[in-house]
Amino acid sequence: MAEPAPMWTVLVLPIVLGGLALFAASLNGVLTAVASGRRATLAEWAEPLRASARLLVRQRRTTFRADVVLRRVGIAGIVVAALLASVPTPLGGVAVADLPVGVVWFNAMEILLWALVWLTGWGGNSAFSLVGGYRFLAQALAYELPLMFALTAPPLAADSLRVGAIVQAQQDVWFALWMPLAFLVYLIGIVGVAFWGPLSPPAAADVAGGVTAELSGADRLVFLAGRYLMLAAGAAFAVPLFLGGGQGPLLPAWLWSLLKMAAVLAVLVWLRRFSLVRAERLMSWGWLVLLPVVLLQVLVVGVVVLLRG
């Protein structure tokens, strides 16, 4: 399905992913506005752009004896990790590179945030920012293993780690339909990776913004952008993995891909309307509920593959 990728895809990737991230930020802004009793005007949709302008003209401050190098590595690294994670994600039939181990690649790039978010929290040399970094790791220990197993279900069914092959294997039935639990656990995992919604304690108000507590100016802008990019990358990867990639009637494949990506992203953004999950609860739920559930799902997929022959 995926042809050798032309060079221009390298330029398209940041544009598409950036557009999706901006859509997520705008939707978030509009949901906030509506919850506050304001109308969803054009200005509210454009709010992320204005907020970016604000951060751009403001001073970048650091804290006392901050480890500026590590902090900048963390901040900028998240943007890079999100872009790299999307390298095997096809838009229609074309990905930047349909790697032979695309699924493992996505997993590896997404897990870079363990280091990057912690570094951002650590580099600030402030208690709340460090607490935020540690909270991320604590959550990661709860969601990462279920996420990894959720990621193995589609390759198991498609008999390939190549994303293109996984899309092709869904020509008759989308994987989301016959492995819904893996899809659900995958989405929960992505919410954790982007520390979004119920899994946003690493950047929550109770610790004054956590990892973001000491970020100002361009640093803050890049960090927040990285977080939205990661959320977008996760939503985008769900489409070839579970939702049949660019398959769909009438419209061209790339448009189907884009629509599905935006829909998944919208669902993820909407999750911000729930309250937070405490780290210790997430740990129990992750290991006692999500992990058995997803293992069972993988077992079912395995049996189906065997029976099919």
């Binding site: 506050s36 009793g37 304001r38 200005a43 509210e44 108000a205 004054a208 507590a213 000491e214 100002s216």
Partner: peptide, 13 residues
């Protein structure tokens, strides 16, 4: 709330 301003969590923001 009515004007869409935000209360900052910290001095940095």
């Amino acid at each position: 709330r009515e004007h869409g301003w935000s209360l900052a969590d910290t001095a940095a923001d």
